[in-house]
Design a protein around this nucleic acid. Sequence first.
DNA 1: CTGTATCCGAGAAGATACTG
DNA 2: CAGTATCTTCTCGGATACAG
Lengths: 115, 115
Amino acid sequence: MRQRYHCPVELTLDVVGGRWRVLILARLKEGPLRYGQLRRLIPDISEKMLTQRLRELEADGLVLRDATQEPELRTDYRLSPEGETLAPVLQGLYDWGLARAERTGVDVSFTPPGD
Amino acid sequence: MRQRYHCPVELTLDVVGGRWRVLILARLKEGPLRYGQLRRLIPDISEKMLTQRLRELEADGLVLRDATQEPELRTDYRLSPEGETLAPVLQGLYDWGLARAERTGVDVSFTPPGD
DNA sequence: CTGTATCCGAGAAGATACTG
DNA sequence: CAGTATCTTCTCGGATACAG
């Protein structure tokens, strides 16, 4: 993260910008998810990108990770309190996308986790 | 623009994603601006990027451009009605950035056009 | 299942010079 | 002032293979 910005929006972009971060956050906004679930819900992301972005979101304090080995390897990701403060932003992005899709006749789906 | 998305947020990103588009839109949200003003308000953008992004925003129907030759060359950019629908999203990004800056002690400025 | 490590390419962006 | 045109650089992300 930089130390100076010419606009608050610039700072926001630094934290949630890029192709994947808000997609991950938008999913976690609905509730905790496992690594594999995230991968299925965001079909075009590669494992490398998913892991990389999750690590960055953790480092930035937006996402919490808890892993257990017992009885088997299992990792859950969820929004931290700081991450929850993004909820209105994420909702705004979601709502606008939906409205825009209706105006332009584009197809959007939003598959729920469904395990 | 693609024809299918797995999440409405994905569509939104397709339109306003990338490093510069929302910065330009956030500025235009405050009112019409000339090319040179935008360049000064977004100091790190290159002329090439500014022109390129403005053309894309025009093509996507978010920004309107009106140029006059008389009495001298002058071009104004402003949000279209469709672009105005992004106002809540832009405001959300702005507000979150400002709040995050306060929490993390980072410096943000938001210079008004001032000509 | 939950990841790491490497290698590679495309596209985004930067620098600079030039134009009506 | 408001751009174009080129050329180069570099970051992001894709593909694939491997590991606890």
